[in-house]
């Protein structure tokens, strides 16, 4: 729009001011987190609301990494999130492929079932899940978290994978199958390379979802050894709520994997949604 007509300079200035305000709003909380994490403990109170710390230190990070349990929590979270992401992507890819390539009896019911799981409040099943997991003796184990998270993420991941498969022309694998490939060979040789970006995106989405899940992890885990990062951080906060610098350093560490994923995904975000919107 702006390119089409001559814009009055006051409006341009207003626009840039609005953009700056949005950027400041989005970044300020994260900046503050980083600022307190880098401020030496002795200066936290005297610095007060100063926007820039008068002295920088990495002590808080050092303490968190070498002298606390946070690295164990971090490791637990990485194990849970990676396993969940891998298992979900594999299972959802198979299901998404079935949705994309077959017209079969009962398909509408299966789709409806998957949509249903997205509608009801997940907290409804927190008590039954606790009892079931306790009954098979898997409380305080990462396995139970992995299984639960995998199931939670399958419906969304399936629809995501289906949309990626829908984007690959059917003719490609049919041609391969006419040339004598079995379906599995056609999948491996023709479809897999084309769908790698889709698999990557699904892995990333599920990883971040599993990384941030808190309430089920709180319910199912209470031994220190098996705590994931969110549970560990929350327990730390409620026990030692004065080590501000260390808590925020731990927070900054928790942010790292999500930010990496975000950098990877953000350029596809608007593009992908746009092409989807045009199609619909």
């Amino acid at each position: 729009m702006a390119a089409l007509r001559r814009t009055p300079p006051a409006l341009v200035a207003g626009k840039y001011a609005a953009i700056a305000a949005y950027v400041a709003f989005a970044l300020f909380p994260l900046y503050w987190l980083l600022k307190i994490a880098l401020t030496p403990d002795a200066l936290i109170f005297s610095d007060g609301t100063a926007l820039w710390p008068s002295e920088l230190t990495l002590d808080n990070f050092r303490t968190v990494i070498f002298q606390s349990d946070f690295m164990a929590y971090f490791r637990n979270s990485v194990i849970v999130s990676l396993s969940t992401a891998a298992a979900t992507t594999l299972i959802a890819a198979a299901a998404g492929y079935a949705f994309s390539r077959f017209a079969f009896r009962g398909k509408r019911w299966v789709v409806a079932l998957m949509l249903l799981t997205q509608m009801f409040p997940l907290l409804m099943i927190i008590a039954p899940i606790y009892k079931l997991v306790a009954a098979i003796g898997l409380l305080n184990s990462l396995t139970s978290l992995i299984v639960v998270y995998t199931a939670f993420n399958i419906p969304f991941a399936t629809f995501l994978m289906q949309s990626f498969f829908d984007g690959i022309p059917r003719d490609l694998e049919e041609a391969a199958m006419i040339d004598g490939c079995t379906r599995l060979q056609a999948l491996r040789v023709v479809i897999l390379p084309l769908t790698l970006p889709g698999l990557g995106a699904t892995l990333g989405f599920v990883f971040t979802a599993a990384w941030s899940e808190l309430l089920f992890a709180l319910m199912l885990i209470n031994s220190n050894d098996a705590m994931t990062f969110p549970v560990g951080l929350l327990t730390f906060v409620s026990k030692f709520s004065v080590d501000w610098g260390q808590m925020m350093a731990a927070g900054v560490l928790a942010l790292v994997p999500s930010c990496l994923f975000f950098l990877f995904i953000q350029r596809y975000l608007v593009q992908g949604l746009t092409s989807g919107a045009v199609k619909g």
Partner: peptide, 16 residues
């Protein structure tokens, strides 16, 4: 930059 908050884990948003 403005889309970044969307990627921050919710427990960390709450604490921050």
């Amino acid at each position: 930059l403005v889309f970044l908050p969307w990627a921050v884990p919710t427990f960390l948003i709450a604490l921050t």
